[in-house]
Design a protein around this nucleic acid. Sequence first.
DNA 1: GCCAGGATCGTCT
DNA 2: GACGATCCTGGCG
Length: 191
Amino acid sequence: MSAGDRLEAAFFDRSVHEVAPELVGCTLAIGDCAGVIVETEAYDATDPACHAFGGRTARNEVLFGPPGRAYVYLSYGVHSLLNAVAEPEGSAAAVLIRALEPVAGLERMRERRGREDELCSGPGRLTEALGVGLELNGSGLDSPPFELLAPERGWGSVEVVAGPRIGITKAVELPWRYCAAGDPHVSRPRL
DNA sequence: GCCAGGATCGTCT
DNA sequence: GACGATCCTGGCG
């Protein structure tokens, strides 16, 4: 992929462990709002912390489907969390989008968030800022209202560091969290 | 500034 | 009937 290209489904049609770190630096846009992805986490079917670990159910259906779609679910009965489905159909895996650096539509984000800062520095926060709800579960990330672009100049070379995932109780030791080194928008404990 | 606790609801046992 | 891939508020020092 080259700078500014739209990410097609083929980008996601491979190991989630390749996709997750490469998503850092990409631009995610929804409607008029957009942000650069600065933090992700990988989940695959062999992983006890993955929703698909226990097998296919009505909720995690989308995880088993074709790559390049959005998997949105409700966390703690309060927050919608956004994932990008990876790996071929039948193989359940996804990348959790944990944090963005806002680059467009800041006013709209502030409006939706009801605050001036901390707009997208957390998985539940960015979905609220961008207006992502459960109704987008299963929709393609390469078609409206979504748009996903390869890193612009200057972002392609950002250093990505790996560390332990956050907010889970199973398989905590797996270093499957990726974030842009030193980025101030990364959520919670920095690496 | 830090930490503990509560909100809130769909999904699975 | 319990449990989260979380966030925010309030209380205390």
